[in-house]
């Protein structure tokens, strides 16, 4: 089992957002987590990645059997977890090259590998840029600075490609994308799918799931996963909205 979340509770400023999430993800799977605004989707992603503003009050998260919640943010990343940000951060003055090279070499060091040579690193940059159809020279550009919404999201998938995570959580990667950019981003993600890794896609809309077809779809509602199904569940949600789930919960 790659990821096991058991009865996870988390709060921010005393307000409980996650109220007992259970989730299991195996290598090779693509999961979609859907749900209305404010139900805790992004919080779940943040807690897995290690954002410190959230306080875990109960439950556990195991990653490859290890206690994830004890690890600092960077160690989680080195262990193979990647968060695709809903709002990627602009960092003026830090070039993408320096950023990625530092990150990649720190991850390699953690696994006892030698740093990549300059030439090997640049070759890898070029290869991965193609995956998300980035034409511009990234070398001299600062991380996300002045990027359009689409460029920022492409850049997230580019970073994912560079780092080759075992578990990628893509937090509303589709928001702010036009249809062409959406297709490019989805193609990039699909190219990175393998039997050894897993992807959790967080989204409001079915639209993204036409391109990244999930194996399993979850509905997160009021801080809990209330429904799990196959890819057809996403279509059902698209057709009927979330109200029927609310009603279904009330009648229980």
């Amino acid at each position: 089992m790659l990821l096991q979340i058991k009865n996870l509770h988390a709060q921010i400023n005393g307000k409980e957002i996650l109220r007992g999430v259970n989730l299991e993800v195996k290598a090779g799977e693509v999961h979609a987590i859907m749900g209305p605004n404010g139900t805790g989707k992004s919080t779940l992603a943040s807690v897995i990645a290690g954002r410190e503003v959230f306080e875990v009050t109960a439950g556990e998260v195991l990653y490859n059997g290890k206690n994830l919640l004890e690890m600092p943010v960077e160690q989680r990343a080195r262990e193979g977890i990647f968060l695709g940000f809903q709002y990627p951060v602009e960092i003026p003055g830090v070039s993408i090259t320096n950023f990625m090279r530092t990150a990649l070499n720190e991850v390699r060091k953690y696994h006892g590998q030698e740093p990549l040579s300059g030439a090997a690193f640049l070759a890898r940059m070029e290869e991965k840029k193609k995956l998300v159809e980035i034409q511009s020279k990234l070398t001299n550009r600062s991380v996300n600075e002045g990027f359009s919404g689409g460029e920022k999201k492409k850049n997230e998938i580019f970073q994912m490609a560079m780092l080759e995570p075992q578990l990628a959580i893509l937090d509303e990667t589709d928001s702010g994308l036009d249809i062409d950019a959406l297709r490019i981003v989805a193609n990039g993600v699909n190219a990175l799918r393998s039997k050894d890794n897993a992807i959790i896609v967080i989204t409001h809309y079915q639209r993204l799931l036409d391109y990244i077809v999930p194996d399993i779809v979850h509905v997160l509602f009021d801080g809990k996963i209330v429904k799990t199904g196959g890819k057809e569940l996403a279509l059902e949600l698209e057709g009927k909205g979330y109200d029927w789930i609310r009603k279904e919960l009330e009648t229980r």
């Binding site: 990645a49 290690g50 943010v73 960077e74 951060v89 960092i91 950023f99 530092t102 953690y110």
Partner: peptide, 16 residues
């Protein structure tokens, strides 16, 4: 947080 979430440790993140 963004830098660390890519595996970069505290020291190097500050440095960058």
């Amino acid at each position: 947080f963004y830098l660390k979430s890519r595996g970069i440790g505290e020291e190097n993140a500050k440095m960058l």
